[in-house]
Design a protein around this nucleic acid. Structure first.
Lengths: 203, 203
DNA sequence: TTTTTAATTGAACACTGTTTAATTCCATGA
DNA sequence: TCATGGAATTAAACAGTGTTCAATTAAAAA
């Protein structure tokens, strides 16, 4: 069992997040077990409560790791993307789907974990979430002839549009059960929406 | 405790679905307990396994009830809706959101319950799910100048679009945290998309 | 070296879902 | 009317879970 000289507080925190994230990837949210995650890290459950204060905060930390990986995945995809607007949008949406498909369990865990509004999320975890939308902000909003606030709202609405397709697809929900290319549908919808928000000179 | 003369098999099935549905509404999927649902119906857990064969089938039956209520809610909203196309679409989307907001726990349980692909859903439960999309089919697809298959795909993509807004909103996800009128955003996106798929004479 | 302080554990508690032997009840036949 | 066969129902057992907290252990301070 772990001795406190084995790891600094930060190392221990990281170690637990790593083992928890790996377990989440194997089992998914429904079958996740904090006991098992601690066991695999070489510690006992209590340590998780010491380090994170509670299960919710631990799960938030695990999901934050997913958010950071997701952001990096999108950035990587944008490097190889074409330079025209439609091409970049398509690359972004397909990368969104690609990450979700290649990391189904941890991706879905983000939305499976319902956080009570009373619990406040640490600024570091908040940043991980914000990082993702800021990529889309940078990629989409700046090209639109809208004031900042309208652009912000539109970007978030576009994220919701893509999310809806991805979520219904990966959860195997009825609506998209027979759809062969959900990402393609999402791309089409996003581009259709965007043409409505371009100034004439941009279209 | 329940005696078998108290209820016919069908009545018992219905009784258990009712108590389970009520409990789901109170507690939500994460805190749902089959034991407690059976207890409130006046039976013990084992009865649920007898009647439904397993927890998954029980949850499917509970969610089917939600689907039927949801469908009825939409139909009711369409009766009072204006007769112009945009007005009816808006009424439909807002009713979609309205049901979800007024029945948060049971609505989310639909998507929280991940059904293993191996488990087959009874035709009755399938119909409950299909009923919902068929409402949108009837309301939207027939007005479009598309062949049947394209219209089907588009309708499902529109459902995914609305679902994404509703899901991110109700789960309190980051993207829509500050959005005051998520339903309005969904309506706008749907209408923007639809104008792309209308024949010139319809627009 | 002893004392203090903090990290870590392990056990207890009240719950789950799931299975199965035992019980209880009902309908049928004598 | 009463016994019996069979089906509905239960209770108990099992292996887990999250959560808390006294007891223990190890490192740091004195």
């Amino acid at each position: 069992m772990g001795r406190r000289s084995d790891h600094s507080p930060d190392e221990l925190r990281e170690l637990l997040v790593l083992s928890g994230h790996a377990l989440m990837g194997e089992r998914g949210f429904a079958k996740f077990s904090a006991r098992e995650a601690a066991r695999r890290a070489g510690y006992s459950v209590g340590t998780i409560y010491n380090v994170f204060g509670g299960l919710d905060s631990y799960l938030i930390a695990i999901n934050s790791r997913t958010f950071r990986q997701w952001g990096a995945w999108l950035e990587a995809a944008l490097i190889d993307a074409p330079s025209d607007r439609a091409g970049r949008i398509e690359a972004l949406v397909r990368a969104y789907f690609g990450f979700a498909q290649n990391n189904q369990n941890v991706w879905m865990a983000i939305y499976d974990h319902r956080i009570d509004r009373s619990i406040e999320i640490a600024s570091e975890d908040d940043a991980a979430r914000e990082g993702l939308t800021s990529i889309v902000d940078r990629e989409v909003a700046s090209t639109l002839g809208l004031n900042d606030n309208d652009a912000r709202r539109l970007v978030r609405s576009l994220i919701a549009t893509v999310h809806g397709h991805c979520a219904l697809w990966l959860t195997g929900s009825y609506a998209l059960l027979e759809e062969k290319d959900p990402a393609g549908q999402a791309v089409d919808r996003v581009l259709e929406i965007l043409t409505h928000h371009l100034t004439p000179s941009e279209s």
